[in-house]
């Protein structure tokens, strides 16, 4: 730990400013969902991907779109659109979708008499993979491979993806017919899985009042943060300090899930590492150079729940809650050392 470079106060303040600008900007579209926005951003900053399991019409696409529109794009050769923001691609997964529809394909160039590579939608910054469980396992694994490796290999050539590559996958929790549920090993690739859920009554009325501006995302949302800022935040997040006791708590939680009689499959060590990465990112987004017990409590469920298999599906929440609560209480009652 000590070998790591420490965050300066200026860095923290800068990140915090950018993060709140981003949250505020997205918040114009996604109303009353600040905690969820923050979790999405946490995944983004931690360098992971996210799986939203939610009913249709609760703002998943808007989320992804407004996020993309809030980040100013960088001007590289790979730029595909003329807009000022980072590229945003949406792929609607269907059973007949093929991997090449995602990653791209070679097409014959009549002029050059050669095959040229036509990149698929994955060559972008923010990818919304809608209803991921409707596609065949083949397509799913193609996507997941890209997510894991951050590159695409077709034939002999390997095309690197953008450094800023963020997948927001969704799946519909109610209609399971004709779907291919993601296996546990693949779910593990997503840093978080959670639902947006419905908003409160007041917020819903607010949305109905303002739906015109909400629907016009390009007009409502303008970039507030640069492509470079995201990379900067990612680097800063790695320098966030995590107290040894909190690390111990993460370990305790992971171990407890493995020992608990109600859980068949516990959290893996990779799960624990992801948990720590998210803790750091989350702390940074809140303008802190250190993680606290509340971060642990907020993040535990979205990060860990989909990595475990319960014996009895009914009590999924209570078991993890109990474990996390025990650790949070341990930390809260911990006497300050020094």
């Amino acid at each position: 730990m000590s070998e790591l470079e420490m965050l300066t106060l200026e860095e923290v303040a800068y990140c915090r400013e950018k993060a709140s600008a981003l949250t505020h900007n997205i918040g114009k579209i996604i109303r009353g969902k600040e905690p969820e926005i923050l979790k999405v951003l946490t995944c983004l900053v931690a360098g992971g991907h996210i799986l939203l399991e939610d009913l249709p019409g609760l703002g998943k696409t808007s989320m992804a779109k407004s996020l993309a529109f809030s980040i100013e794009g960088h001007h590289t050769a790979e730029k595909h659109q003329n807009d000022s923001h980072v590229t945003f691609k949406r792929i609607q997964f269907t059973p007949d979708l093929l991997p090449m529809d995602l990653i791209g394909t070679y097409i014959f160039d009549d002029r050059n008499k050669d095959f040229i590579f036509k990149p698929g939608p994955l060559f972008g910054n923010i990818i919304l993979a809608d209803e991921i469980n409707r596609a065949s396992p083949k397509v799913q694994s193609a996507l997941l491979e890209c997510m894991a490796e951050n590159q695409i290999t077709i034939g002999e050539r390997t095309y690197p993806l953008d450094e800023f590559f963020f997948v927001i996958a969704t799946q519909n929790p109610i209609e399971f017919e004709g779907t291919y549920p993601l296996p546990a090993a693949q779910l593990d690739r997503f840093f978080m899985k959670f639902s947006f859920g419905y908003v409160s009554e007041a917020k819903e009325i607010e949305i109905y009042t303002d739906y015109i501006s909400i629907n016009k995302i390009p007009q409502t949302v303008s970039p507030v943060i640069g492509y470079e800022d995201i990379l900067l935040m990612r680097r800063s997040a790695e320098k966030v300090f995590v107290h040894p006791e909190i690390i111990r708590s993460v370990s305790n939680i992971a171990r407890a899930t493995r020992d608990d009689a109600a859980i068949r499959l516990g959290v893996s060590t990779r799960g624990g590492i992801i948990f720590l990465r998210c803790l750091r990112a989350y702390a940074l987004l809140q303008g802190r150079g250190y993680a606290i017990e509340d971060d642990l409590k907020t993040l535990a469920a979205p990060i860990l729940n989909h990595r475990m298999i319960y014996k009895n599906q009914e009590e999924t929440i209570s078991v993890l809650d109990r474990i996390v609560h025990r650790e949070v209480e341990r930390l809260a009652n911990l006497r300050l050392q020094q």
Partner: peptide
């Protein structure tokens, strides 16, 4: 209090 508790010693 959290800062005192969880932040690195230098902070």
């Amino acid at each position: 209090y959290h800062k005192a508790k969880y932040a690195p010693a230098g902070m």
